[in-house]
Design a binder for these strands. Structure first.
Length: 418
RNA sequence: GUGGGUGUAGCUCAGUUGGUUAGAGCGUCUGGUUGUGGCCCAGAAGGUCGUGGGUUCAAUCCCCAUCACUCACCCCA
């Protein structure tokens, strides 16, 4: 049996209502905040991601679906959307047509990792990017937007974490301070942290090793070493969040893994998922557009994982989706009347109703059971004595009341059902 | 890439301390008399017990390998 590739999942008809629900809310919220949808190809030139996300990151280093096509070009299935959006912005000069571009997307992403709860190789994100302004109100808007959307799904167990990474110059200064602090403690660090000391020293704060945590407890924090401008920026973001009544906590250890972040970073986590608890992550990236060959365009964005959100909804049972109903099921009382039943079905369908009927000459009982299974609001019984007297029977499945209607009077049948 | 767990019917899972025809619930199908659903009742279909090898008179059960799924680490949505 051929099965779906490891880490990929079919979204079956039974799952679709939840997905539609989420996608509709995202689209509606984005509309309210005036973000316009953008769709980009699922694969791009590999260089876009290796340059945009950062050569040293795990995503680029070991998680990308990269292959050479028949023309021997290296292409990659997108592991995230920001680089693609920035590419499209530059390619189509969107930044020159208007100074602020507010864009959103709902799209599949691909990363070749070991699957686990809340982690798939093809997964789906919705997200937004605002390109063209360094105003802290946009940093806050991203957080508010993400928070408001996730709130709409009824998830209660949420924590918004924010931090600021400052600008590269102050960050570099801070890194030397941190290195100084760790110098005499280096030998006591875990092997992993020793490696990170070189590659990404900020991530030492993330370590789950108890020893490391003990060491890092008293380490100087980046937040305490921000330049004045970054500090002011961060203050404004916090103020806006407070007045917007978005509960948040400052997490000085929140160091996002991607290279392009500057200033604000944030994450929304839920303990209703497995260990992969981040439902949403984002931040400001003022250097990326330039880095990818565009002008200096300050920008901020976020991405949220739909599968993780669905997991949280599931454990919190927060999604109460409307029951699926069928307007009418056509029941054929006499086997000879199949064509007639089919005809009625078509008429009602063309009138805009949701209609089903039996295709395999099953018994009346079987048809009624099917109607019930499909949650039909009405059944239209075609045949028998009534039919000989030019009538069809319309039965309300909830009240069990039925009425005879002149069999040519389609209009009144439709009217009743509607 | 590393570690743990699990593979028995479409789904959720029992079970055999190795012994004849492997079970339940749900779902599906058919029926419970003239032409009517839900509840109830009866019956039916459906399984190479993940795969390959080993031990044994005998393996779904024990041993080994392998694959798949799953959770966790790393990292991320």
């Amino acid at each position: 049996m051929i099965k779906a590739i490891k880490g990929t999942k079919d979204i079956l008809p039974k799952d679709i209502p939840a997905w539609n629900f989420i996608e509709n809310i995202v689209a509606e919220k984005m509309r309210q905040f005036n973000y316009k949808e953008i769709r980009t190809p699922v694969f791009e030139e590999t260089a876009l991601f290796s340059r945009g996300i950062g050569e040293a990151t795990d995503i680029v280093g070991k998680e990308m679906y990269t292959f050479t096509d028949r023309s021997n070009n290296s292409v990659t299935l997108r592991p995230e959307m920001t680089a693609s959006v920035v590419r499209a912005l530059i390619e189509h000069f969107l930044d020159k047509q208007q100074n602020l571009n507010k864009l959103y997307y709902i799209s599949p992403m691909f990363r070749q990792e070991r699957p686990q709860a809340g982690r798939l190789r093809q997964f789906h994100q919705f997200g937004a990017e605002a390109l063209g302004s360094n105003d802290p109100s946009l940093d806050a808007e991203m957080i508010i937007l993400a928070y408001d959307i996730i709130k709409e799904f009824g998830i209660k167990n949420l924590t918004v974490k924010i931090n600021s990474l400052g600008v590269p110059s102050s960050r570099e200064e801070y890194k030397t301070i941190l290195r100084d602090y760790l110098k005499d403690k280096f030998e006591n660090l875990s092997e992993e942290s020793k490696n990170r000391y070189e590659t990404n020293i900020l991530r030492l704060f993330d370590s789950k090793d108890e020893h490391d945590q003990e060491i890092m407890k008293n380490a100087p924090l980046l937040l305490e070493h921000l330049d004045d401008e970054s500090l002011e920026h961060f203050e404004k973001v916090k103020q806006i969040l407070l007045s917007a009544k978005v509960p948040f906590e400052i997490d000085p250890k929140l160091v996002r893994g991607l290279d392009y972040y500057t200033n604000t970073t944030f994450e929304i986590v839920s303990s209703s998922v497995g260990s992969q608890s981040a439902l949403c992550g984002g931040g400001r990236y003022n250097l990326l557009v330039n880095q990818l060959g565009g002008k200096e365009v300050p920008a901020v964005g976020f991405a949220a994982g739909i599968e993780r959100i669905l997991l949280a909804c599931e454990t919190e049972e927060s999604l109460n989706l409307p029951e699926e109903k069928l307007d009418c099921y056509i029941v054929r009382l006499d086997k000879e009347l199949s064509a007639k039943a089919y005809e009625y079905g078509l008429l009602l369908r063309r009138a805009g109703l949701e209609v089903e009927l039996d295709y395999s000459l099953r018994s009346i009982k079987a048809q009624m059971r099917e109607a019930n299974r499909l949650n039909a609001k009405y059944t239209l019984l075609v045949g028998g004595e009534e039919f000989e007297n030019n009538k069809v029977v319309l039965k309300n499945m909830e009240t069990s009341e039925q009425q005879n209607i002149d069999f040519e009077n389609i209009e009144s049948i439709i009217k009743i059902i509607k």
